[in-house]
């Protein structure tokens, strides 16, 4: 765990020194039904790098805060706070996610800006004092895999029945959310092609696609 933190520090130092910040997230999303998740996990174990041990599990609590930047047509700015429920001693994470760019058909993945930083557990108070309001929260629990620079998560999303008590939860669907993402500096579009090829290997078990957020809201 300490090594992970130092790795994060290393990458931060490297970013500061070279002035290159991995602030673009390349993303593909899909889902797999509960009945088929075992098959998917087996396949991912075969495809990904961290296969010697059991797949890494995680259980996170994510809160989405929003703050108004201006009068109505302006979209509220949202910030996400995430903490690991299974590793209480790990730092919390504050993350900004920009508007996703779908691009045209030639672009294989969604690209959105993403900046994250480790924080202490007082970040919630800090945001509240800034005037942010909690928009929604959920529990995300599942498995993560690594393949080169790509990160794959297979996770169930739970709604919190009672606020502040992460044990009392209920799943919001009969499927696991599957996300394939890479954090990279701006302009490294080659990685998107790798992601497309990787996503092809998971078909037809999972259809990893560019999901249009705007269409979903209607």
């Amino acid at each position: 765990m300490a090594s992970q933190i130092s790795t994060a520090m290393d990458s931060l130092n490297a970013a500061v020194k070279s002035n290159i910040i991995p602030n673009q997230e390349y993303l593909l999303q899909g889902s797999v039904m509960d009945s088929a998740v075992e098959v998917l996990l087996q396949r991912l174990r075969g495809l990904c790098d961290n296969v010697d041990s059991r797949p890494e599990t995680f259980r996170d609590h994510e809160m989405c805060f929003s703050i108004r930047r201006g009068p109505p047509p302006e979209q509220p700015l949202s910030l996400r706070v995430r903490r690991a429920l299974d590793h209480q001693d790990m730092p919390w994470q504050l993350r900004y996610i920009g508007q996703p760019e779908l691009g045209d058909k030639s672009r294989p993945t969604i690209v959105r800006s993403s900046i994250d930083i480790a924080t202490s557990s007082t970040v919630v108070e800090f945001l509240t004092e800034l005037g942010c309001r909690i928009d929604f929260e959920y529990i995300v629990q599942g498995y993560m895999f690594r393949k080169g620079r790509m990160k794959v998560t297979v996770a169930k999303i739970f709604k919190m029945v009672q606020v502040k008590i992460p044990d009392n939860v209920e799943p919001i669907s009969q499927s696991y959310l599957v996300e394939l993402s890479v954090l990279a500096p701006r302009g490294q579009d080659a990685i998107a092609e790798d992601m497309r090829i990787f996503a092809e290997q998971l078909r037809p078990l999972v259809q990893l696609e560019k999901i249009d957020y705007k269409r979903l809201s209607h």
């Binding site: 889902s31 989405c64 929604f136 009969q174 499927s175 037809p204 696609e209």
Partner: peptide, 28 residues
């Protein structure tokens, strides 16, 4: 018969939930 291992409706539900809090806000 097993071809149906994923459902786009579920994908949309999940993505909308984590992206915009759809279906998560009702309790808050």
């Amino acid at each position: 018969a097993q071809v149906q291992t994923s459902s786009s409706a579920d994908t949309h539900t999940l993505v909308a939930a984590i992206g915009m809090g759809k279906g998560l806000k009702s309790d808050s």
